[in-house]
Design a protein around this nucleic acid. Structure first.
Lengths: 191, 191, 191, 191
DNA sequence: AATGAATGAGTGTTCATTCAT
DNA sequence: TATGAATGAACACTCATTCAT
């Protein structure tokens, strides 16, 4: 957790960290580069974070929360399960298209042991309402009766991979590309 | 006359590289650790690969080819598109479940610039038959008429994410779990 | 009108410096720690001392003067040379036992070049009366006719080492331990 | 403990360490300087010692053993207690005069917590024969019946301080200076 | 070919000192 | 005067790569 000193600096540090980690991975992240990109001195970085690990973990937590907000949004609550799901899916897909670095950052280290399990759990807690929503959909027979974890993995994996290919330039998402993708997602889980 | 290079050593090096990269990422990979895990001296590693980058690229190429083989297999050719697709999907899913490190290794660096574009293209070429198969499926109206790249990304992303959650222990894949996952995959692309 | 500098703060700084230097040596002394232990901000420390070196030198000077006062004291002037010497020796030994950190601090850097020669000389000047006293003892044939510098080194070295072992817990000084030590000191120099 | 690679390098490293520590203390010791003074690269230093602390501790152990050898020497065993003590004292005094840096190095950190207690004890064990010799001297009524630890501290402190003053140039030890100093030492402990 | 000690540029982190408030 | 955030040079330690054997 950063000492609350200058929120502008914290933001700049987060931004720089996300961009650099996306390019080089955690091990390749250089504190000096983070500092430079943030417009501060190396030493100053350590005024805000006492180690590289703490920095990574903090950025992870904040980003995960932001992502949860991109999916779980009061405005997305519609009359039908389908409509709500559609809004949420588009919320997430749109977020990933807009901030692919954040998506990549968050994806990058869950399997590497750099983020503490405690923080992973803490971040996951923000997605609880999503679980509830999906379970209700199952109870009302809107979607297949599959473990929620599998459902989420399936949906998220699809979105991530498509966005990654898009970022790489391997995929040109036409105007209706997003809708086509959504249709695949919906068809895969609907009853 | 011995082979120029000792294939046993090459295999050990590949195995060590894959396991270590999975845990630490490319930047975190230490040549000394690779050597130790391979049972050879540091200097010997450089007899086989002239740099870390070359090592990574070679392992990438070999692994990608192996993966292609897990999908594209004469035995998988069945009477119907559905049956063939099913065999291929299970071939890939099974491979990922068996060798998650290889899946993670290959996934890890495509977006990081460590693998040369030339090698990415070279590896992708092995999947050409898959593209052909999918396009035929579209022409015969078995599956949705969506950019093949998107189709592949969607299917692969789903598989990868599910396997990752399984490896992490967040998902318990019951006996019929694989079939459930396949159903989602098929439902998402079928016409 | 307040004093230019707050003497309470100066005292706190001196105390903190002595305790910390004893534990870590001059190079290991951290200005931030001195400040914290003194109950002031880092920047404030620089209001009182313009550098670490100046701080060390000032503490050295003040402490050396205090030590001189522990030896050279009008109350210690007795009727005989022996009695006076005894009082002085006990004054010094008692001081070292009471303030071993100060003894260690002063001892620590004389051979390290951190204290300027000018300040060493300035501090040594306070011991001039001791030299006179010893010389007189020699002229009156009370003690051996040895270079005063050697005499002082011999006596001081013995006291310091014994106190150090005591502080380390390697020596238990019984009630009469001090007298035994004094007897060694006296026997070594008496004619 | 150093890996036994190249004893010449180990010797050079020890020499450099002792000289530098004497000047700057443990905290001020720079690994890069040790390497340079030893004629090796920084990284090489870490081939021999895995950390600064391990280096210091090893040098301490080796030096302490050497010092023990300077006092406890079969050649010093004479017919009388006095003659033997005299030989030992001169052995130690001579050693300190010849290698004052080693004397200072060893003295420097016992009170600083840098040398592990285990190693201090290990080093002290080499002085056990000296303890036995002094105890016998007490039993045979040659010297005062004082705690051996105090005796050693007294004798050692005197020698160290005199040598330090000599090194600093504050004392000129004439030809017979050593004998004068020995006389003080003997007079202080004889019965 | 195989070895592993040697190298030195590079990285995370610290800390004396400065400076805006 | 007092503060403590900011600075950046410096340092312990690492690691890809080389090279003598």
């Amino acid at each position: 957790m950063p000492k609350l000193k200058d929120q502008n600096k914290v933001n700049a540090i987060h931004k720089a960290t996300i961009e650099l980690v996306t390019k080089t991975g955690f091990s390749g992240l250089k504190m000096a580069e983070v500092a430079k990109k943030s417009g501060i001195a190396t030493g100053t970085l350590y005024v805000y974070y006492k180690s590289k690990e703490e920095l990574i973990n903090d950025v992870y937590l904040v980003t995960k929360e932001e992502i949860a907000g991109a999916i779980i949004n009061p405005e997305y609550l519609k009359d039908t399960f389908y409509e709500t799901f559609k809004a949420m899916w588009h919320g997430y897909f749109g977020y990933c298209m807009q901030y692919p670095e954040k998506m990549l950052f968050v994806e990058q280290f869950i399997y590497s042991g750099y983020i503490s399990e405690v923080n992973i759990a803490k971040a996951d807690a923000h997605f609880e309402p999503l679980d509830q929503f999906l379970i209700q959909g199952q109870q009302n027979n809107h979607i297949k009766d599959i473990s929620v974890e599998i459902l989420k993995a399936h949906l998220q994996g699809s979105v991530h991979e498509i966005v990654k290919m898009h970022v790489r330039g391997d995929i040109q998402l036409e105007e209706d590309g997003m809708h086509i993708c959504f249709n695949m997602a919906w068809d895969s889980i609907k009853t």
